[in-house]
Design a protein around this nucleic acid. Sequence first.
DNA 1: TGACTTTCTGACGATCCGTCAAAAAATGGC
DNA 2: GCCATTTTTTGACGGATCGTCAGAAAGTCA
Lengths: 241, 241
Amino acid sequence: MLSPKQQEIRDREELLLDVAQRMLLERGFEDLRMDRVAEAIGVSKGTVYQHFGSRDDLLAAVAARSAATRAALFERARDFAGSPRERMGAVEAAAEVFFALFPHHEQAERLVRGAHLSPRISAERVATLEKSTQRCFGVATQIATEGVASGDLPLREGQSVAQLCVGLWNLYQGAFLMRDLEKFMSDPAVDDAIGTLQRNARVFLDGFGWRPLSTEVDYTAARERALAELFAVEAEAAGLR
Amino acid sequence: MLSPKQQEIRDREELLLDVAQRMLLERGFEDLRMDRVAEAIGVSKGTVYQHFGSRDDLLAAVAARSAATRAALFERARDFAGSPRERMGAVEAAAEVFFALFPHHEQAERLVRGAHLSPRISAERVATLEKSTQRCFGVATQIATEGVASGDLPLREGQSVAQLCVGLWNLYQGAFLMRDLEKFMSDPAVDDAIGTLQRNARVFLDGFGWRPLSTEVDYTAARERALAELFAVEAEAAGLR
DNA sequence: TGACTTTCTGACGATCCGTCAAAAAATGGC
DNA sequence: GCCATTTTTTGACGGATCGTCAGAAAGTCA
């Protein structure tokens, strides 16, 4: 029931997000100018402000959109066929795909959260972003919980599924951030951020004693299968594999 | 051999950094206004620009200063008396102290690096920041290397000291970032960011098989000792222990 | 004390955000 | 197809901040 005009407006919002996302990646937030975004799709600045209440809000909208995409990737990984630990590996593969496909996201989300929640950002937008993060944690939590239930993941005193998920998330976020460091440090471990992340995630899960350990099984094969079965298109686009 | 005037200028630079750091923490970078920084110490804007070439440069200077402090804390931990793994624990304690004492730093460093290195930042400032990071990695690398040499840390095929250091760094950075999330998610593991970081670091090093494992030795005591011997003043100020 | 150097100042040009009244386009009844 | 009404778009404008620079003030030293 969308009139032609309403459809045009909808499409334009996506277009605006595309433009803003690209500018964010190429020039950074400081150089994300509202007039340029408007000009890039042939409208005036006022029209942009009809979609996004402020520059910060536009940034948040970009972050919210890619965060939702990430959550969707994570949820696709949830249905992977395999042992709990293999399925967690599929989640890691999802994170890697996202890592490669949306390089702007880290900067965007960090700015949104770091801006100490500028009141110029729509609350709804923040809620979406937050919900997406929780969806990601939800997937990881579910898989780890199943690992505990199946006896593969023997948590010790004081350890919890949440702690494990936070740790993986931290490793992943840290690797995301380290991409910036590549420009400054030349070290194989820093250079190959994704490979290092994979290895470190395995070490981390081994540390929990999550069976089968990476010394018992080669998880590379499972990762390849996850990329092929779940993320064929995305992995192709990202140049993984 | 500093004239009174030169001394005054030196002192003023520290004062400016103090003010900027506080404003950064309280209001965020968007609200760090050059006139307000100037006014806060009773000089005009032009004078501020005599110290820092631009607003971005002021931000970078704040980040560089705290990064140097972090490097110093790390290097203090290097001389801790104990097994290699206990000494790495002292480094983690240093990171925790810094974490608690300089909450502004993560935001600052992230902005500096994320701004795609605005040409308005003095190259020297960036070099200082980078050098401090490398000093931190240097300490961690040295300790891990000693662990390998002593036989406590048995690296497997494809693993490296650099990979281990990157992993710890990522965990640490990720935890730093997660502080922002605390406002949104209510979960014990998220809430107690430092405690979770400690536990996860132990799991991670256990995953490498770095002896003695945390299941064999209680590293809490070593951590307490490190805080007392190395960072008594800082831990007190940070409210740790 | 006075000539010279260094430092400081704040008004100014330039830039960008976000607004809003007026213009343009779309809608819908006839 | 026409026109009244509603929705949408426009771009000039006010306000705010950055960084500059010529002139004023303060400092230095013989």
